[in-house]
Design a binder for these strands. Structure first.
Lengths: 146, 146
DNA sequence: TATTGTTATACTCTATAACTATA
DNA sequence: TATAGTTATAGAGTATAACAATA
């Protein structure tokens, strides 16, 4: 049975990969949100648009699995994006499913948003050399069992 | 002005440190939540308890700054932890502030919860060698400008 | 004036369950 | 029977603003 006698809390937190990951993620996400502030979008919406860009005509369930959220959570995202004229729900492979597509305005909007996010990413990773950034991405990929 | 003509969405996402960080964080956090399931606690509560363990008598504002949330968000956390008898609000350095302390039951509970989280952390990082884990933590530390 | 704790309120994100129409 | 989309609802987590007590 474990005891806390010999375990310092800070040491325990510092040694947990999960906790450091959480801190780093909070910093990066906040920077990304700030970079997109006033643009009526969020990092999640940019992620969704990038997926649709690469998978034109994909259905909502596929997108929801990629985003790691439920189908219903995708609805609000798509509804606002569609109301902004950035995404369209066209006919899909089924009569049940929709085919998702970026509109021309959506592509133009995405180009700007992506630039902002990439700039934010460069800024927040400026503490690392290019080699270290590649190393970090490789380790994160490996962590996910890829 | 950027265009998307030559930018593949997946490539853009794969190259963003922030996105990979987000994916890895989601996996690690979900594993931690599952490890603590049924124990009436969360990773955030364990983090708070570890901080109080290392900083006995600290006030709520200090804890809120460490957790990167507002003072009011700390209230719900402390209220439930106090109702479980894991944390006590004693008199602090001021008549305004509370001094936070773990109860004996809180320390025992934390010892078990920390063991579960550390086991979850080991499991989720099993894809990495020990050297790679240390490397990852070092890179995450450096990313945060420490 | 500034700070600490507190409360009330609202907002975002998400999960669950149920429904419909298709398959 | 299974799946895709949808809707309503509830829960967690957080931010904001205001207030009382204290500094």
């Amino acid at each position: 049975m474990p005891t806390l006698d010999t375990i310092s809390g800070s040491r325990a937190l510092a040694g947990l990969v999960g906790f450091q990951l959480h801190l780093a993620n909070m910093r990066v996400m906040q920077a990304a949100r700030e970079a997109l502030a006033g643009r009526n979008t969020t990092p999640a919406k940019v992620t969704a648009m990038l997926f649709v860009l690469d998978n034109p005509g994909c259905d909502q369930t596929t997108l929801s699995r990629f985003m790691h959220v439920g189908r219903s959570a995708i609805m609000k995202l798509l509804n606002t994006m569609e109301s902004h004229g950035h995404v369209e729900r066209r006919s899909g492979r089924d009569l049940r499913s929709n085919g998702l597509h970026l509109t021309p305005q959506g592509e133009a909007f995405l180009a700007e948003a992506l630039e902002l996010i990439q700039e934010s990413d460069r800024h927040v990773t400026a503490q690392l050399t290019k080699a270290e950034q590649d190393q970090l991405i490789a380790l994160l990929h490996k962590l996910q069992g890829s």
